[in-house]
Structures are given as structure tokens and as C-alpha cells.
Simulated scan of single mutants.
Amino acid sequence: MNSPPETQRLFFALWPEQAFQESLAQIARQVLGKQGKRVRPENLHLTLVFLGSMTAQQRACVEAVADTIVGRSFTLQLEKIEHWSRPRVVWCATEETPEPLIELVQQLNQGLTVCGHQPETRPYRAHMTLARKVAGHFPATRVAPLVWQVDHFCLVQSVTYPSGAQYQVLRTWPLGM
């Protein structure tokens, strides 16, 4: 009897430097206090495209697509904190999504269709999740802007343990000028 092929849970993301992650975690501590379950600083990232469980063959296909991406580097400025009450998530976002970021997500989604990926139907919202399981009403808050110079994107593996998710950057691709 054949066993099912081994899979990895994958996504494309922007992965900030540790200092940026720490600054964002500090803002989360100040704004949230003891509310919700905060994302560990080393896990803070901005998802571009969630892929889900993929076989080695599917992973090779998405990596080949990423090899063809011609994106521009850009500055990302996170300056507002908001709350989605339905999934009970607090997140940090930009006031305005930079055009090169929108283009990068569009290129990935378009290219990944050859791998069988179905693009998200909802409009893309650039955000970094700060905490989950935040109950009740959480008002939108403006924060001192955190500025991040983005010059690459990554393929990331997510592994879920009883203690929470652990992410591993598998590969990176540069963004040009």
C-alpha cells in the first residue's frame, strides 16, 4: 500500500530583520497589554501568498515560478493597528500599500496558477499579525511609523507544534531597484 506523499505547509512572505521584529513586538506589548496571544517576535512576518500543504514536486514548481519574478525593492511603513473581530486577530498595517508590493503579490498569484494554485478572491491587505484570540472590541490605533526597506521575499515553511507555530525561511529571492 502506498503512503501519501510527504508535504510541507508553505507560504511566500516578506521576512523582516530581527531588530524590526523586536520593535513591532514592543509596540504589540504596549498596545495589547495582556490581551490575546501575541505572535512571538521571531515569527512576525508579512504573508504575500499562502500556499498550504505541498508535495516536493509542487514546491519545485512554486520555486521555479519565484525564480521568474522581477520585483522592485520598496519601503514599507507600518503605522496603524487594527482588529478583525471574526478571527479575533490584531494586526499592524500600512496606511497605503506600496505599488511594488501589490505588483509582487499579483506576479506571484498569476505565476502560481501553473502550479495549480488558486489565488485568494479577497483583495490583498498587507498586514502583520500581532496577536490572535483577542476578545471583544479593540479600537483602531495609530502608532509611530515603523519603516522597513524591503529588498527580498521568501518561501517559508510553517510547522505547528502544541506550543505554537514555528516558521523556517527555506529560500529567498532578491527584489531589484
Rank of each mutant, 00 (worst) to 15 (best):
Q58N: 11
G52F: 02
P87T: 10
D151Q: 09
S53G: 15
M54Q: 13
V105I: 08
P4Q: 04
R86Y: 12
Q157N: 10
Y124D: 13
G33R: 02
H45V: 02
L104H: 03
R59K: 15
G111M: 00
I81H: 04
E79L: 00
P123N: 05
A135M: 07
T121Q: 11
L155W: 01
D151M: 00
H83K: 00
Q35G: 10
P174R: 01
V143T: 15
C61I: 11
L24N: 07
G116C: 12
C61G: 12
M1G: 15
H117C: 07
A66C: 14
E17P: 09
R122L: 05
E120I: 12
F20V: 13
Q107K: 02
Q110V: 10
V156W: 05
V150M: 01
V147S: 14
L44V: 12
K34R: 12
V150Q: 03
G36C: 09
V169L: 01
L155R: 00
A140R: 07
A19L: 08
R125N: 09
Q166D: 09
G136W: 06
L108G: 06
K34Q: 15
K37F: 09
A135L: 10
E120R: 00
C92E: 02
S73V: 08
V159P: 00
I102L: 13
E120T: 12
A131C: 12
S53V: 02
R29F: 06
T172E: 09
A28T: 11
M177D: 15
A165F: 00
K133C: 10
Y167E: 09
E96Q: 06
H45N: 04
R132N: 14
P119A: 08
F12W: 03
Q168T: 15
R86I: 09
P119E: 06
I27V: 15
E99M: 05
P100C: 05
M177Q: 13
F50W: 03
A64N: 11
L24G: 08
L24K: 02
H152S: 14
